[in-house]
Lab assay of single mutants.
Amino acid sequence: KNAAQIVDEALNQGITLFVADNRLQYETSRDNIPEELLNEWKYYRQDLIDFLQQLD
């Protein structure tokens, strides 16, 4: 998997990933985040941060 796929997957589930103060953050109206997504975000944290910062 790559960062773009993970960001896309999150968006499809109503979750927006973004970077604030060099930390990976998310916004969602969901009550909870599936644990497998959280684990994936932790595992790919630096890739996601790098990818999202390139988009800014």
Rank of each mutant, 00 (worst) to 15 (best):
A4G: 08
D47V: 13
S29N: 13
Y26G: 02
A4I: 06
G14I: 03
E27S: 15
A4T: 06
V19D: 02
E36K: 09
K1F: 04
K42E: 15
Q5E: 08
L11H: 11
L17R: 00
L48S: 00
G14K: 05
L55F: 12
K42I: 15
Q25A: 09
L37A: 03
D8E: 15
F51Q: 02
E40W: 04
S29G: 09
L17M: 05
L55W: 10
A10I: 03
D50H: 10
D47T: 10
V7Y: 14
V19N: 02
I33S: 02
Y43E: 13
W41M: 07
N2W: 07
D21P: 01
R30L: 13
Q13C: 05
R45I: 12
I15N: 01
K42Q: 14
D47Y: 07
F51S: 01
L52V: 02
S29R: 11
N39V: 10
N32F: 14
N39T: 11
I49V: 08
Q54A: 13
A20F: 12
F18L: 09
L37S: 04
L17Y: 01
E9A: 06
Q5Y: 05
D31T: 09
A20Y: 12
N2F: 09
L52E: 00
E27T: 14
F51K: 02
V7S: 02
Y43T: 13
I15K: 00
Q25S: 09
E36S: 11
N22S: 09
V19H: 04
N22Q: 09
Y44L: 03
Q53C: 09
Y44E: 01
I15S: 01
T16I: 15
L24S: 00
A4F: 08
P34F: 04
W41P: 00
L11I: 09
I6D: 00
W41Q: 00
E35I: 13
A4V: 06
L55E: 11
N12A: 15
D8H: 15
Q46G: 05
Y43I: 14
A10D: 01
N12S: 12
L48F: 00
L48A: 00
R45H: 15
A3E: 02
R45Y: 15
T16L: 13
L55H: 12
L48H: 00
N39K: 12
G14Q: 05
L24M: 03
A4Q: 14
D31W: 06
D50G: 06
Q53L: 14
F18I: 09
Q53T: 14
L17H: 02
L24H: 00
N32L: 09
W41S: 00
I6E: 01
L38S: 05
A3Y: 03
N2H: 12
Y44V: 03
T16D: 06
Y44H: 08
Q25D: 05
L17D: 02
D21F: 07
Y44F: 07
E9T: 06
V19F: 14
D8K: 15
Y44C: 02
Q54E: 11
Y43C: 06
T28Q: 03
D47W: 05
E27L: 12
L17C: 03
G14C: 05
T16E: 07
F51Y: 15
R45A: 15
V19L: 10
R23S: 15
Q46F: 07
D47I: 14
A3H: 02
Y43N: 11
E27R: 15
D8W: 15
D47L: 11
G14E: 05
I6L: 11
D50Q: 10
Q46W: 07
L52M: 04
S29D: 14
Q25T: 07
Q46R: 08
V19G: 01
I33E: 01
Q25V: 10
K1N: 03
N12I: 12
Q5V: 07
A10F: 03
D31G: 09
E36Y: 13
V7T: 04
S29A: 13
Q25M: 15
Q13S: 07
D56H: 13
K1S: 04
D21T: 03
N22E: 08
E35V: 12
R23F: 10
D21L: 05
D8R: 15
L48C: 00
K1R: 06
I49M: 09
K1W: 04
I15R: 00
R45D: 09
I49R: 03
N32V: 12
I49G: 00
D8M: 15
Q5S: 08
N39Y: 12
L37D: 01
V7N: 03
R45P: 00
N12P: 01
L37C: 02
W41Y: 06
N22M: 08
A10M: 03
Q53N: 13
D31C: 08
L11Y: 12
T28R: 03
Q54W: 09
R30I: 09
Q5T: 11
L37H: 02
N12R: 15
Q54R: 14
I33H: 02
L11W: 11
L38M: 11
L24A: 00
N12M: 14
Y43K: 11
